[in-house]
Amino acid sequence: MSGISRRKFLTCTLVGAGATALSLKTDAFASAKLEGYPDSMGVLVDLGRCVGCRSCEAACNREQNLPAPAQSFEDQSIFDQTFHNGQKRRTDENAYTVVNRYEPEGTENPVYRKVQCNHCNEPACLTSCFVNAYTKTSEGAVIYNPNICVGCRNCMIACPFNVPAYSYSSATNPIIKKCIFCYDTRLKNGQPPACVEICPQQVMTFGHRKELIEIAHERIKTHPDRYIDHLYGEDEVGGTSWMYLAPAPFEEIGFDTTMNNEPIISNVKDFLGTVPMVLAIWPALFTGFHLLATRKHDIEHHGDDHQKHKDEEKKS
């Protein structure tokens, strides 16, 4: 029986490693920081103005052809609904945006908070998707291609705002359901999203993200008594296209204030960085171990039946 030559053996190793390397070529570079598109649009949500009329929910439902809700959009009793240990309503396959009511201590009126996709500058959903189903458009929208989605739901795990929902009810074509900034029907034609347009109070201001940041800080400066001195989304997880001003502490009205200012992908960088290292070091390292650990005879006759080794061991 012909034994394996050293060259042959090394070739095997390299082919194995090479095949792996090919599939991973861009991993290490994928984590470069993206500041967002310079002309990205955004929406400034001023929660101090919201009166909880839920017009935005209704407009979204119509614009996106969503299924009929369980209750009328007029029905204010929906604000009393809680789920699972006091959870407020969240976005799901039937609603891309929801408004929740909060009663923070020390404020006279309730504070309403509108939830929808915040359209991150460097979206976690996008970076976690292994088929690249998400796109951050130059207008700022984070859109989704349902035709290639496999349904792993990693984006739902990754989203720090718990926004993407899944249409579990469909057996044949379940897809991710989330706010797309009305990209197809409005944003790309230069129009504001449906919720922004319908809002009677102009809770939402649509414009270029960088100008909205200036305007937001101007509002805080002009009316320090009305606002918490923070623009939520300016820096959170690398910045979002939708940003919030609030009349009460953010943590008391359902916001996660423990978020890092780095995009989510930064947490993954440590691992992604090790990938090319492992690919480069392991083959040589373990081949080296192999050469050190086995005698010349073992290498040359590796293909032989192991009984031979045992016989030798018994003899020696």
Partner: peptide, 21 residues
């Protein structure tokens, strides 16, 4: 009325959305 699902467009209690929170 159709927009707000109000008036004669008010969902009947049986017309429940399938969503689960």
């Amino acid at each position: 009325d159709a927009l707000f699902r109000a008036g004669k467009h008010t969902p009947t209690p049986t017309e429940k959305a399938a969503g689960h929170h």
